[in-house]
């Protein structure tokens, strides 16, 4: 490991791996999707080289911790192998599920906010942490629906995870904004519940507005620059919780590396203010 993750970083995708090796851009750290580096291929070889010069965060999208299925031990073993290989400073996954009965949806799907679901999620996080022998971070979701059975607020469910499982929190500010807009929640209610000491990383990304017959819904597609509203919310959060490692995510219509680095510098300006 080359050092600790701090200040600003960017999500690193396949098309920029070689450019990062060649140009060694001025950035503090990179985050990759863990599952894309489970195999012994060119991308993994490239990430090994990058990890010699930058701290790395492994951000999972496949553990499906909120699923009613048992944890996939094969997936967990592959994650452990990647952790041993790349020595990440941080490891994270999502408050979501993506598989049931062996079917995979390649998406981060919402869980119902019930005691059964909370017990299930906490149990899975503990299993992962026991297996890896270290803490992981859990990211709050962006959602478009609410389940009838939910009787706990999203922010209470999310904020309870550290004390119940020992995990840390990855606070995605765009997800807070998208969920609050879509469901009519107040972002301040969400943030008031979060204990600053639990937040170990922040994500920023862009969303898309979709017009439906009954109104506008925000889709968290990571396809644009961070919106002004999300920058404002991010400033308020940093004022409240202090300097926290912050990542720019971009997963759809991925732009030139220079644009990602430009967005990351905006985050640094907020951290420095």
């Amino acid at each position: 490991m080359v050092g600790k993750i701090n200040n600003y970083g960017i999500g690193l995708r396949h098309q920029h791996l070689q450019q990062v090796i060649d140009e060694k851009p001025n950035i503090n750290w990179f985050e990759v999707h863990s599952e894309n580096f489970f195999y012994d291929n060119l991308a993994s070889y490239q990430l090994e080289q990058i990890a010699q010069n930058y701290p790395i965060s492994l951000h999972g999208i496949g553990l499906s911790l909120g699923s009613g299925d048992v944890l996939d031990k094969n997936h967990l073993h592959k994650l452990k192998t990647a952790v041993d290989r790349f020595s990440p400073d941080l490891i994270s996954d999502h408050l979501s599920w993506s598989s049931i009965n062996g079917h995979y949806l390649n998406d981060l799907l919402p869980v119902p906010y019930t005691q059964e679901s909370l017990n299930n999620f906490v149990n899975k996080v503990k299993q992962v942490q026991d297996f890896l022998g270290r803490k992981i971070l859990i990211e709050n979701p962006s959602s478009y629906i609410c389940f009838k059975d939910s009787n706990i607020s999203e922010w209470d469910f999310f904020a309870a995870l550290p004390s119940l499982s020992g995990c840390g929190l990855l606070l995605d500010v765009n997800n807070v904004y998208v969920s609050c807009f879509n469901h009519g929640y107040k972002a301040q209610d969400y943030l008031n519940c979060i204990d600053a000491k639990d937040v170990k990383e922040i994500h920023l990304a862009g969303y898309t507005e979709k017009k439906l017959e009954q109104g506008t819904i925000l889709i968290d597609d990571h396809s644009k620059r961070v919106s002004d509203e999300v920058w404002d919310l991010y400033q308020k959060i940093i004022q409240k919780i202090g300097n926290t490692p912050t990542l720019i995510e971009w997963d759809t219509d991925i732009p030139d590396l220079s644009i990602l680095l430009d967005e990351a510098k905006k985050a640094q300006a907020v951290l420095d203010a």
Binding site: D107, L109, Y144, I145, C146, K148, Q214, I219
Partner: peptide, 24 residues
């Protein structure tokens, strides 16, 4: 019928996830 009532119909909301799945 497992979604809480809101601004949008269940069919519209499930189409968001449907579109994400096929798009990804």
């Amino acid at each position: 019928n497992y979604l809480a009532n809101g601004r949008f119909t269940a069919v519209d909301l499930m189409h968001v996830y449907h579109n994400n799945y096929f798009s990804n």
